[in-house]
């Protein structure tokens, strides 16, 4: 770890990586909270994985893969959201199908693009050490879009995540805000792909918010704590992986996953002890 800290001041790519992690955690804290309380982790997983189709196509046709990822993520968010709203019968099967189709399309494109192997690995598992500086600006721009949208329509997003039926009765355009929320999830997925890759996106999108949910009981509080936890996991994961030369993404995820499991056990224990105390007092 100390090795990492001294290297951090020398190497610009480490500073860029650290910044990328922090930028990503803003998205994972704010949007991740919605994903957790609305229980749409499976849909978020579908969006994340089908993004490979867009990245593969962009690579094949010579565009920036992140731009392809953004377009594919939004398209897949709209498709998956429409399925969820209007085709409830086989929701999970259809989302699973979109998930797989997106990945298959991506892999076909990448296979037909020369020099695919390294790209595929960094799409799937991320490579935070290779984030170019200009991509930091792209990430900051996405963060800005996320924050602005959530701040402007906070009450509508709260209403749609809390109680769709009641929101509809109060004249909130539920379908619009539901799809918009999924588009924000899509943007967050693209933010996180740089850091941990599309396979592990779902972990950073859910675990920090879920841990926060063990201890705070307001949406805003969860967002703040989850953002801080996201920043902690990405920074600490980067630092821990540097010395032994481990891949950074999986290190971050193991860290987040380990803390989540411990926290779940702890909050379970606290609930149990609270109930016991109430019972013995009675």
């Amino acid at each position: 770890m100390s090795e990492f800290l001294s290297a951090l001041s020398e190497h610009a790519f480490l500073q860029t990586a650290l910044l990328a992690g922090l930028l990503a955690s803003l998205g994972c804290g704010v949007i991740g909270t919605f994903v957790v309380v609305k229980r749409i982790a499976f849909m978020a997983g579908g969006i994340a994985h089908s993004v490979l189709g867009g990245m593969g196509a962009a690579l094949y046709y010579g565009f920036d893969p992140l731009l392809g990822a953004l377009l594919a993520a939004i398209l897949s968010a709209l498709l998956i959201g429409t399925v969820r709203l209007f085709w409830k019968m086989q929701e999970d099967t259809l989302i699973g199908a979109l998930w797989a189709i997106g990945m298959a399309v991506g892999i076909l494109f990448i296979a037909k693009t020369p020099g695919y192997a390294t790209d595929l690995m960094s799409f799937l598992f991320g490579n935070i050490l290779l984030v170019p500086t200009r991509e930091l600006w792209f990430m900051a721009g996405l963060d800005l879009v996320l924050m602005l949208t959530v701040a402007l329509f906070y009450r509508q997003f709260l209403a749609v995540t809390f109680d769709e039926e009641f929101a509809r009765l109060r004249g909130v355009p539920v379908t619009f805000f539901y799809l918009l929320l999924l588009c924000l999830v899509a943007v967050t997925v693209v933010l996180l792909i740089q850091v941990v890759g599309l396979i592990l996106v779902i972990a950073l999108l859910t675990l920090p918010a879920a841990i926060a949910g063990h201890y705070v009981h307001s949406l805003g509080g969860m967002m703040v704590i989850a953002t801080l936890l996201g920043g902690l996991f990405t920074s600490l994961g980067l630092g821990l992986s540097y010395g032994p030369d481990l891949p950074a993404g999986p290190t971050m995820i193991l860290l987040a996953g380990g803390v989540y499991v411990l926290s779940a056990l702890l909050s379970r224990f606290l609930t149990w002890r609270g109930a016991l105390r109430q019972a013995t007092r009675a």
């Binding site: 402007l152 906070y154 509508q156 809390f162 929101a167 004249g171 009981h217 949406l219």
Partner: peptide, 30 residues
């Protein structure tokens, strides 16, 4: 039946204030 999950992180006051949606300006916080 309440059409929301009971474990949703929200206070009673905030939940009741949602009955005000559609009154007043559309943008912003409560």
């Amino acid at each position: 039946f309440p059409s929301f999950p009971r474990d949703f992180p929200i206070s009673v006051e905030q939940a009741v204030a949602m009955g005000r949606l559609g009154i007043g300006p559309m943008l912003g916080w409560q």
